[in-house]
Simulated scan of single mutants.
Amino acid sequence: MSTDADAIRRALQLADPRLSRFDPLPRIISFDDFDEGFCGWTQLVGNYEHTLDAMLPGYAQHTQSMLSSCIAWEFGSHGAADGTYSLKVATRPRKGAQNVTVKRLTFRRRGPIRWEFYFTFKPEANELRLSETDVRSFGFGYDLQTGDGDGNGARVMPHFRFLNARDGEHVQRWQFKPETTPIIPIGNEGKTISHYHLAPEGWVDLPGGEQKLCYNEIPTKVNWHYVCFDFDLETMRATGFRCNDRVFDLSAYEPIRMPAMRNLWCMLNLFMFAETDTDKRAFLYVDSVCLSGDF
């Protein structure tokens, strides 16, 4: 049974149009409305030491995300789901190129967390054709590490991607990644290592993960979608995932796991990415993000 405090909290959320579209856990950790700016989301820069040339090629391709009104050549601006601006993650115009945006936090207590956001995706509209298979994938995930009081600790990286197309053929399936690429030393001081965890190898189909998302009739139109991902920082396990009206079974889901790294204690990073399947840019737009916890 809800307490009076729970009822008041819920009533306040429902009275705020920006929050009422979400179903947050009791404590809102961060709420990002990109009409107010970048809200801490930034470029995922790869590790380097002494020279930027030490950065792994996967990271070297990344650029800064931008605030966008989702412009279109016919009608000027599409705007966001709410207000004018969304966060736009754009790849380079090269088949297989990726781009990533990240928000870097730490957690103060291990417990359930919930990540909700509204998004849409499309390729650059530089042809008068639908182009529905030009975006290869988009996705999101956490980069987590236990606290320094947890013995040797662990770094855990839950990943999801929606594989929209491969080599021009529609796939439309959610996938996860249980393993990363080999960890590589960076520099010669023994302080920095790196691995490109979004490499195309190693993605696994989520059982029952087929889903047809709304993709409108011309390449400049967009429709906004909803995602909710539940995770438990105590057990470091995924506990729920839904997109729009679909709730997916996570019984086979496994995040990337590896030993803790020397200076990442209590890390709570969120990232989102886009990937193109053709020699044109792919765009991921994110209207708003709500991260909440039950602590």
Score class of each variant (00 low, 15 high):
Lys103Asn: 07
Phe162His: 11
Trp174Ala: 01
Arg161Phe: 01
Ile113Gln: 06
Thr181Asp: 13
Arg104Phe: 05
Pro182Tyr: 07
Thr120Gln: 09
Gly151Asn: 11
Thr106Asp: 05
Ala165Trp: 05
Arg114Pro: 01
Glu124Val: 06
Thr181Trp: 05
Ile113Asn: 04
Glu189Lys: 15
Arg110Trp: 06
Arg129Pro: 00
Phe138Ile: 08
Ile184Lys: 06
Thr146Lys: 14
Lys122Arg: 15
Phe140Val: 04
Asp143His: 12
Asn164Tyr: 03
Phe140Thr: 04
Arg155Asn: 13
Gly147Tyr: 09
Trp174Ser: 04
Gly149Thr: 03
Leu163Asn: 04
Pro178Glu: 03
Phe121Leu: 02
Glu179Val: 14
Tyr142Met: 14
Arg110Ala: 15
Glu127Gln: 05
Asn188Asp: 01
Leu163Gly: 00
Phe121Asp: 10
Arg110Asp: 10
Leu105His: 01
Asp167Ile: 03
Gly153Asn: 00
Pro182His: 10
Glu179Gln: 15
Ile186Tyr: 01
Asp150Cys: 10
Arg129Lys: 10
Lys95Trp: 03
Asp143Ser: 11
Arg110Asn: 08
Met157Glu: 04
Thr106Phe: 01
Glu116Gly: 10
Pro185Leu: 06
Ile186Leu: 00
Asp148Ile: 11
Ala154Gly: 07
Val100Gln: 10
Arg109His: 13
Arg104Tyr: 03
Gly153Asp: 08
Gly111Ile: 06
Gly96Met: 12
Ala125Val: 08
Thr120Pro: 11
Lys191Phe: 13
Arg136Glu: 15
Phe121Glu: 08
Ala154Trp: 11
Trp115Thr: 08
Gly141Arg: 12
Arg114Met: 06
Arg94Cys: 07
Arg104Asn: 03
Arg155Ser: 15
Phe160Cys: 01
Gly153Ile: 06
Asn164Leu: 13
Phe117Gln: 05
Arg136Thr: 09
Thr106Gly: 08
